[in-house]
Design a protein around this nucleic acid. Structure first.
Lengths: 300, 300
DNA sequence: CCCGTGGTTTTTATCATTAAAGACACTAGA
DNA sequence: TCTAGTGTCTTTAATGATAAAAACCACGGG
């Protein structure tokens, strides 16, 4: 058939709600006003009005729209909000690839995956195309897709790339003037780090969001859409992996906090060389953690 | 309807060509052999054989496939190779955006563009999705696409990103051992640069491919799929812009050759600091050229 | 003259259809 | 019995048709 009428249905039901508040025989607002209120196109409003007219709830006659009776519960149209958002799809897909350790070179079945993820097939198609740039999937010569897989090679190259970007960011930070917002932000996150370090035995789980914030502050001074875009993917993948590798989590996180503090202190002292070195060493640790987490996962 | 039978048609015609070399009453090879030779599935081969049987060119009977008569010119099926490849689409699209200076925020009409570029709409859709990651286009809230445009901001950020990657590459080059293939490659391209410098007055147009080679050699030591991917886009965009900015081309190219030589010499001397500085300065020139080319283009 | 309305056109999202690919099982001949 | 080849069937993705949604336009009443 064609596109779903979900938009029409929800607009129709919302319209019923508005009608319920009007007295019988009242005149309805204009089509444009209704479309603005319901945040849909006039086409949808007109279709809904026609349906209401057909159901005998209102009477349509040119620009005269008169309320005939109050709507009942059974007038409502059923609607099922099946489909998930693009971000949710991204999360689900990565979850699927990383958690179930889908082997490299797996051919992807668009129709089946679309069903599994509750999205229309062509949205999945589009999503795969956008992933293609990150080298996670590949178009097969004659139709279809192939998962290139989250291999060790991939992880190494991703980490290396991350290092390049992040060291660059660290270098940029020390060049910022004293009134740049990055300085108070760093001071604030430094306090958060110290606070978490105090209660690390109990709250070591709280490190993951803090880690995300820290790296995002560092990268925020680099005002570059390409960096930002990549940072999104990088943090997503690192975040996902950390979630599952529970070995030595307390110890690991404590060490990472201390590494972060070394970087922060060097940055606040405007000591570029030391900050860079500290960042490099932190990123190297991070890479090792990612790789060992993958090895552990493979053995499991 | 359904997918086109272009595959069947071209296989059929190829099969006619093979038959032309066989004598009448000869037995044909097996389906598997034919499918391997024509590089199509057995399904297509069988369909083609059936069609040949129907046309009275061969006689099919179980595994007996006998040649009845030689094929004629009118036996061939017509086929129109309309569609262009993915790379060609990329080139055409960039060409369209950059050359005609399509303004930012332009809503893109998928159906119309697909016609214009001679591709099926869903391929264009897929292509746009893959471009999305590079921040050139964006999905509109309720369907459709919007061109974000190749603005000055975009060019600046692209150039900056390029600098980050390329300086990183330069740093990597000086760390390579003496037997790494990058050294002979650099020596060779150094000779090419000197040779072009000698005949710059006449052959200054030959610089563009040389420039591409040079940057690709530098980046080849960084074995990273993300870098490679980005490098592709970067070189594409720079290449396109250089093509049109004809002002001072001879002078510009001569200067660029000398900058390249400074980088190469520093690299060959394993002088990382000098090489890095030379690269930075070259990239800054490059960025300026790109920006001024855009300004000139805007005024035109 | 301007806003609101109805009609019309354009454009996108979805679905049914069908070609292509491949899997499986069967058959003939060595 | 084994192998090469064929017949049949299932699965899958590309494509055209089509309905929903949005945009456009001209008209008419205040």
């Amino acid at each position: 058939m064609a596109r779903t009428d979900a938009r029409f249905r929800s607009a129709f039901n919302e319209l019923l709600d508005t009608l319920a508040e009007l007295p019988v025989a009242a005149a309805l607002p204009s089509e444009v006003q209704l479309s603005q209120r319901l945040k849909v196109s006039r086409t949808v409003v007109r279709a809904a009005l026609k349906a209401l007219d057909g159901a005998g709830i209102i009477h349509l006659d040119g620009r005269e729209k008169m309320m005939l009776r109050h709507p009942l519960a059974e007038d409502r149209l059923t609607l099922r909000e099946d489909y998930i958002s693009r971000d949710a799809l991204e999360a689900r897909f990565l979850d699927w690839v990383l958690r179930f350790d889908v082997p490299a070179e797996t051919p992807l079945n668009v129709a089946q995956l679309a069903k599994q993820f509750n999205v229309p097939p062509h949205l999945l198609q589009e999503f795969l195309a956008s992933l293609g740039q990150f080298g996670l999937v590949e178009r097969r010569p004659r139709g279809g897709w192939r998962l290139l897989g989250f291999t060790a090679d991939y992880a190494v190259e991703l980490s290396d790339f991350r290092s390049v970007l992040e060291v660059n960011a660290v270098r940029a930070v020390v060049c910022q003037p004293d009134d740049h917002p990055v300085w108070p932000a760093l001071a604030a996150i430094r306090r958060d780090h110290l606070s978490l370090l105090d209660r690390i035995d109990r709250d070591f789980h709280d490190f993951s969001p803090l880690d995300g914030q820290f790296h995002s502050i560092i990268n925020s001074v680099v005002n570059n859409r390409f960096v930002t875009e990549f940072q999104k993917v990088i943090s997503l993948i690192f975040h996902y992996h950390y979630q599952w590798d529970k070995t030595m989590e307390r110890h690991r996180n404590e060490a990472a906090i201390k590494e972060h503090l070394r970087i922060i202190d060097a940055l606040c002292a405007r000591d570029g060389a030391t900050a860079e070195a500290a960042a490099l060493s932190h990123l190297a640790t991070s890479k090792e953690t990612l790789l060992s987490s993958m090895r552990g996962h493979h053995l499991a």
